[in-house]
Simulated scan of single mutants.
Amino acid sequence: MSDLVQQIAAAANYIRKIWPATPEVGIILGSGLGNLAGDITDSKEIAYGDIPHFPVSTVEGHKGKLILGKMNGRNVVAMAGRFHFYEGLSMQQVTFPVRVMKALGVHTLLVSNAAGGMNRAFAVGDLMIIRDHINLQPEHPLRGPNIAELGPRFPDMSEPYSKALISKAKDIAAANNINVHTGVYVGVQGPTFETRAEYQYMHFIGGDAVGMSTVPEVIVAIHSGMKVFAMSVITDIGIREEENIITHEEVLEAANAAEPKLTLIFRELIKVL
């Protein structure tokens, strides 16, 4: 048994001792988007630092705890705070929680993030359903020897984001008069926000929004056989020519303002899975 498989088992066993139910849905909450966790009932909270082999989140706006319980009648496990490659972690560490979710029984992963907009039709506070992504991160979470019990050597990425879940989310948004876009997310390393030239380049190659997360977690989720749905909150518009100085505080403010709409869509999507 590989070291990674042993580490996954140790983390999952620790979590099961605290919360023995089997979660169906995993949720990853991005910067400023942690309040959905408040909708989880009958919950148990576990600090990342208490879970064997879990990294610890270092980014403002990420609470750093695992929350397990029920949402709309389904067992869920939510990450209030995620990990990023720019924090100095390995890709294996960044994606370790997704492996643990799979070991616990999760079959569907819902992911949120804060992202910079590159589509001129977008405005700050808009929601974008991710229909595809472009991976510009300098390391790949599946590099190295493949562990067959975790997934195939060459996973198919023709539909990383479930078309069926996207369709359901659009119906939910329409029924609740929430305007949503669909688009392509570009994943970069960070931690710097993008230059104007980088925004233009990433838009030119097909991107609608850019961020420093999500792609590694989605790749590992697909590798492990999960269905994935992901949504970005547009927290700035980097493609504009006028002054557009971006701060993390502004990103958190925009994410917090848009969060109720994203939370509603996630909550209702869990109901109809």
Rank of each mutant, 00 (worst) to 15 (best):
15 I>Q: 14
139 E>A: 13
233 V>N: 09
5 V>P: 08
214 T>A: 08
142 L>F: 00
30 G>P: 15
158 S>E: 13
120 R>N: 14
73 G>I: 03
160 P>G: 10
136 L>R: 01
110 L>Y: 09
34 G>C: 10
170 K>H: 11
9 A>G: 05
156 D>M: 14
238 G>K: 04
28 I>S: 07
199 Y>I: 07
208 D>K: 03
108 T>I: 11
92 Q>W: 02
28 I>D: 08
144 G>P: 05
12 A>E: 11
114 A>M: 02
252 L>M: 11
40 I>M: 13
136 L>F: 02
224 S>W: 00
104 L>R: 14
211 G>Y: 02
52 P>C: 05
225 G>I: 02
115 A>W: 03
137 Q>W: 00
77 V>E: 05
222 I>K: 15
193 F>C: 02
86 Y>E: 00
109 L>R: 06
95 T>Q: 08
99 R>T: 08
53 H>S: 11
153 R>C: 09
5 V>Y: 05
168 K>G: 09
84 H>V: 04
189 Q>K: 13
57 S>D: 01
47 A>C: 12
261 K>Y: 10
155 P>K: 11
167 S>H: 13
199 Y>H: 13
97 P>R: 04
93 Q>G: 06
151 G>R: 02
47 A>V: 02
243 E>H: 10
219 I>F: 01
256 N>I: 02
156 D>S: 14
155 P>I: 05
126 D>I: 00
4 L>A: 05
132 D>Q: 03
250 E>W: 06
248 H>K: 05
177 N>T: 14
88 G>C: 10
64 G>V: 00
223 H>D: 08
100 V>A: 10
204 F>R: 14
123 A>L: 07
122 F>A: 03
